[in-house]
């Protein structure tokens, strides 16, 4: 694909949950290597937006493209596309019946059909990178939240994704574990990974984001560089949101 093709493109995306209009005419492009942080009050639709990108949530209308390819509705094509999109969840969702190393190697083995030796070598390297290689033979429940989330990031990276989605990756963590996860994410951002991060961590947004997208009531209200957003927000809703957070 040429450099001008956005890694993620959403155009005119609408979604309802029953009566609730959770996504209103979303237009968003994430170019290769960009780190986009999505901010907004709870219920603003930012998690839903994140989940529509690999179709964990179907959309009512509009177009979503990954690296120039339209997201298929179902079946093998969709599975293939999802394999290229890494996802990290708020509640980690590590496979409870598999060890940490098995969690990381399972998808390369079963989806990519990588040879076992190669998958384990890559898996251990990834676990070393996120600092938990010594936990490789434990089960998820035996790890702390921060370690589990780092394992989940390694699991997603094992598929060598083109883009990584983070759906509130630190919201379920005890405060002292937030930074170990954010450090891994900052490292990824520096290495040029394309990332879309839904978070409440303003520090991460300032430090690592190329762009901040602010959502409210299912709409993208602002889309700007972090400095501009934090120092000179244009909309009243963004001012209100920042006021509530920064006066804390």
């Amino acid at each position: 694909m040429s450099d001008t093709t956005p890694m993620v493109r959403m155009a005119g995306v609408d979604k309802h949950f029953g009566e609730l209009h959770v996504l209103r005419d979303i237009n968003l492009e994430v170019t290769q290597g960009q780190v986009v942080v999505v901010l907004g009050p709870s219920g603003s639709g930012k998690s839903t937006l994140c989940r529509t990108i690999n179709r964990l949530e179907p959309i009512d209308s509009g177009v979503i493209e990954i690296d120039g390819k339209t997201l298929p509705a179902e079946g093998k094509e969709l599975a293939r596309l999802r394999a290229d999109v890494g996802m990290v969840f708020q509640s980690f969702n590590l496979f409870a019946h598999k060890t940490i190393l098995e969690n990381v190697t399972l998808a390369p083995l079963k989806v990519r059909r990588t040879a076992k030796a190669a998958a384990e070598k890559d898996g251990i390297a990834l676990l070393e990178r996120v600092g938990i290689a010594n936990q490789r033979d434990k089960y998820p429940a035996q790890l702390s939240g921060g370690q589990q989330q780092r394992a989940a990031i390694a699991r997603a990276l094992a598929m060598k994704p083109k883009v990584m989605l983070f759906d509130e990756p630190t919201s379920a963590l005890d405060p002292e574990m937030v930074n170990e996860v954010l450090d891994v994410m900052t490292g990824l951002a520096k290495e040029g990974m394309t990332m879309l991060v839904v978070t409440h961590e303003m520090g991460f947004a300032r430090r690592a984001a190329n762009r901040v997208v602010f959502m409210a009531d299912g709409e993208i209200v602002e889309d700007s560089v972090p400095d501009t957003f934090f120092t000179a927000p244009r909309s009243n809703r963004a001012k209100d949101f920042l006021g509530k957070i920064l006066t804390h």
Binding site: L56, R82, A83, V85, M87, S91, N93, K110, M159
Partner: peptide, 21 residues
């Protein structure tokens, strides 16, 4: 938990693999 199946689908597993593995 539904998150187990979601994580599996997000990694590119199909329905059959998600169910059996």
């Amino acid at each position: 938990p539904v998150g187990q199946a979601e994580a599996s689908r997000a990694l590119g597993f199909g329905f059959g693999q998600t169910l059996t593995v």
